[in-house]
Amino acid sequence: MLNYLARRLVLALITCAAISVLTFVIIRLPPGDFVDAYIANLASNGSMVSAEQAVAMRHEYGLDRPVVVQYALWMGRVVRGDFGVSMMWRRPVTEVIGDRLWLTMAISVSALFLTWTIALPIGIYSAVRQYSIGDYIATLLGFMGLAIPNFLLALILMYAGFRYLGLSVGGLFSSDYAQEAWSLAKFWDLMKHIPLPACVLALAGTAQLIRIMRANLLDELRKPYVVSARAKGLSELHVVLKYPVRAALNPFASSIAYLFPYLVSGSIIVSLVLGLPTVGPLLLQALVAQDMFLAGTIVLLLGIMTVIGTLISDLLLMWIEPRIRLRGRA
């Protein structure tokens, strides 16, 4: 078991290194660099940048050095916790991402929690009472949830919230608090703003999760061990929760790997629509502006979160799945 753990850890480190190379390549892939984008931007506003200024800027950002050297310099700083300066914001990358990261995680985690508490019980009900009226309703709502794009749902909920409930919609803070320093009042303001985006983000995921849970559980409910548990004289609730639901939940442990990067990025489109100050829109802006260090840091973060998520789901599977724990393989 320790052997298995050590192997996983070493593999995770190697993967992280590979991700950093790939990130760098991707960031450098588009033709031109930040200076080109900066000049083009200024040119569209009527300003001009001289060739000397451009060379000076390239030198300042190290863009005139060979690619390998640029990568080595970047990685050297990253390992020491220095992610460079955002060219677009002219502030350290950690500062730019900082608050947004925590806000994104707050929204994502509450959305995820909401998704699970709604979807799992409905999925279980839908499978146990297959083809009942309740199942048909859940299935109908589930397919609607899958079919309606998230941003559309966000718009509808925003409209309804504003028109009928008088909520202040959009963003995570009231205008009074947006620029304020953190205080209890600001935190309370945040708490008032979180439910709407959390609901929007949760609903689409809920629809999908209901379908997955229902399908997983239907497979398990037909297995002989369910019959043998019933034959012991256990109550139906006990039988269903202890045996097939337990088995049907296992696949969710592996899905954690995909959830982790989502936790830090959030949904880009919904964030744009709702005006949420999350990491997703930041990545979009950074990529458009070719802000190398900012985009690189976010992409790197997403990659590493995936690796951490995978590691955690491996550990979790080992914990809940005796076949892996005792044989040391999946």
């Binding site: 297995k223 002989p224 061990y225 043998s228 548990a229 202890k242 045996y243 337990r246 088995a247 799945e321």
Partner: peptide, 16 residues
Amino acid sequence: IGLIFQEPMTALSVHY
């Protein structure tokens, strides 16, 4: 009434 099954592998849950 006790019941004995055909498939001893699938009639027992692997999780317990």
